[in-house]
């Protein structure tokens, strides 16, 4: 019985010295996001907003003029985008965003910073 216990605590064979200093190669799990991808994901996220389900979304559409959202719906659309890209748009910038394109640009720039 004790023999097994002793055997199990025997130290594991050490790595040869050389391999312990091998420089790890840094690899990225994902390639940096492209603008097209930001646009595609944004449109998909915007489609989940109740008020936008039927609308034709383009980069030039203004949330309030073209998509006929009220200010609360606009906030909702922006929060949907925040959720999709897992970021928070600060209040000041959020107040300034009027079109889908502006939102996409902001998200794209933020993603570049990561």
């Amino acid at each position: 019985m004790f023999r097994f216990a002793v055997r199990s605590v025997r130290p594991v064979a050490r790595l040869p010295v050389a391999s312990r200093f091998v420089q790890p190669i840094r690899s990225y799990a994902v390639a940096p996001i492209t603008k097209d991808e930001v646009i595609k994901r944004s449109f998909e996220a915007l489609k989940t907003v109740a008020a936008l389900q039927e609308s034709e979304i383009s980069l030039e559409s203004s949330f309030q003029k073209d998509l006929a959202l009220d200010s609360l719906d606009t906030v909702e659309a922006l929060v949907a985008l925040e959720e999709e890209f897992d970021l928070e748009i600060p209040d000041k910038i959020s107040d300034e965003i009027k079109t889908v394109g502006e939102a996409v640009n902001y998200i794209f720039e933020e993603e570049q910073k990561l």
Partner: peptide, 24 residues
């Protein structure tokens, strides 16, 4: 869009924070 007053912005801010809270 008509310019929003400070008070209106406050409302939107509260709405935004509330919606973010839903995510938690």
């Amino acid at each position: 869009m008509a310019r929003l007053s400070g008070l209106q912005k406050e409302v939107l801010r509260l709405y935004r924070h509330s919606l973010r809270c839903v995510r938690t």
